[in-house]
Design a protein around this nucleic acid. Structure first.
Length: 286
DNA sequence: AGTGTATCCTGCAGGC
DNA sequence: TGCCTGCAGGATACAC
């Protein structure tokens, strides 16, 4: 998906157009993208007035003035497209849910692969839903000590841990791979074997990567677009992700692609020595 | 507890 | 041009 920076960009973009507008009707064009019976989803949302759109982890949270919410998990290819007319917004090729407004405008949930999900939450269910997710990595409360504690409790590869939404919310494969590269940690390193110095470096790397990606409006590899249709500009700032066979920007060694946990990771063999190399983290070489 | 696999879908790039 | 394979930013369920 859309990871944290993309969801943040989407939420900010929607906040320029949604607040105060009232949903007149909801049309579910693809039943599998809504949680529960489509007619119930539509009835639950119709008539509500938008308040502030927020983000939790990778989810865009459409919040209405009465504190009910629609949580949008964008899956791999989900998009939220505002439109000035009643039909699917500009650039919507695979409309799945259409929200129409009393002023004639609209919001389209578009999703090529339909891995995304929309769920309506009464205000009483929000806290319970949000509690299932781990801490926000950009929050002030997400300190180095907090990350060290999370790392120390798991023997799973650090990349897998970073992707686990219950432990840290919002990190996906791109930013997990980038954070490991910045920190000089092999993505397969068992989390509890990462020393204090490296863990602190990972904390700083993760937050820096996420912050910079937010500033760049996210990363567009293929499908991702902000609500205004713009691409994210962070792709050219990637140092490891997707750079198999190209030189490491830090030491010029050739970046390798490895696969574990069913997905690709990209590693500099010199800056990020693997667990099997004896060293869990990079030395002063790079 | 952690890992590998399959599943939900479609589109696209690359090889032949 | 067309066919085939592999791959993709995610999440979950399952067996081992």
């Amino acid at each position: 998906m859309p990871e944290l920076p993309e969801a943040e960009t989407i939420a900010r973009g929607l906040n320029r157009v949604l607040p105060g507008r009232v949903v007149s009707s909801v049309t579910v064009l693809r039943e599998d993208v809504v949680d529960g019976p489509p007619h119930r989803f539509a009835e639950a949302v119709a008539g509500r007035r938008f308040g502030t759109t927020a983000r939790r982890g990778k989810n865009v949270v459409l919040t209405f003035e009465d504190a009910t919410r629609v949580v949008v998990n964008l899956g791999m290819t989900g998009r939220l497209v505002p439109g000035t007319g009643p039909g699917p917004g500009p650039g919507s090729t695979h409309p799945a849910v259409l929200f129409q407004f009393t002023d004639g405008g609209s919001l389209t949930y578009d999703d090529v692969r339909r891995f995304g999900r929309l769920r309506h939450l009464p205000s009483s269910d929000w806290t319970r839903w949000s509690r299932r997710l781990g801490p926000e990595p950009l929050a002030r409360s997400f300190t180095g000590a907090r990350l060290r504690r999370i790392l120390s409790r798991s023997r799973s590869p650090v990349r897998s841990l970073l992707l686990d939404q219950r432990r840290i919310a919002g990190v996906g494969n791109i930013y997990a791979v980038e954070a490991c590269w910045f920190a000089g940690i092999h993505p397969r390193t068992p989390a509890n074997l990462i020393g204090e110095v490296s863990a602190t470096r990972l904390h700083r790397s993760l937050r820096r990567v996420l912050r910079r990606a937010v500033e760049a409006g996210g990363t567009t590899l293929r499908n991702y677009r902000a609500p205004d249709g713009n691409e994210g500009r962070f792709r050219r700032a990637l140092h490891a992700y997707g750079r198999e066979g190209r030189p490491c920007p830090r030491c010029r060694a050739v970046i390798e692609r490895i696969v574990f946990g069913g997905r690709s990771a990209f590693v500099c063999p010199r800056c990020q020595p693997g667990p099997e190399d004896g060293a869990a983290t990079m030395g002063d070489v790079c």
